[in-house]
Design a protein around this nucleic acid. Sequence first.
DNA 1: GCCAACGTTGGC
DNA 2: GCCAACGTTGGC
Length: 138
Amino acid sequence: MKYWLAKTEPEEYGWDDLVASEDAMWNGVRNYAARNNMQRMAKGDPVFIYHSGKKPAIVGIAEVSRPHYDDPADPTGTWSVVNVRAKQKLKHPVHLSTIKKNKVFAESSLVKNSRLSVHELSEDQFNEVLSLSEKAIN
DNA sequence: GCCAACGTTGGC
DNA sequence: GCCAACGTTGGC
């Protein structure tokens, strides 16, 4: 099992939209590194949903409900999508500022490549996010 | 709103 | 194949 994090702009499509749609096609990724990560997702892998923007933070957990397939909106066949399903909102959002201060994430692409929209996390990092989400101030 | 970092494009 | 110019993303 692998662990993932997918970024989204909450004004465009946020956690609440994902909950409402029940099973959503995660589309619009137009970056090779992010696409390659999506192609490595397996059904059932956990995916943190991250809101970028004013208060960047991880807000909830979803899971891959369908592994990658061709983006139906892309006639060239270059880009992929997956389907994800919301599982659980985090008790408290885990802010990027917290992640940056935490040495477990020092080598993470979350810190080193802020522009990447789909990241893989280690098991330790995944568990650290879960643990941080239990704290009101993080 | 600004700007740094990154990715892509296109000229050579 | 290199690299300058440009566009975009996302944190602050």
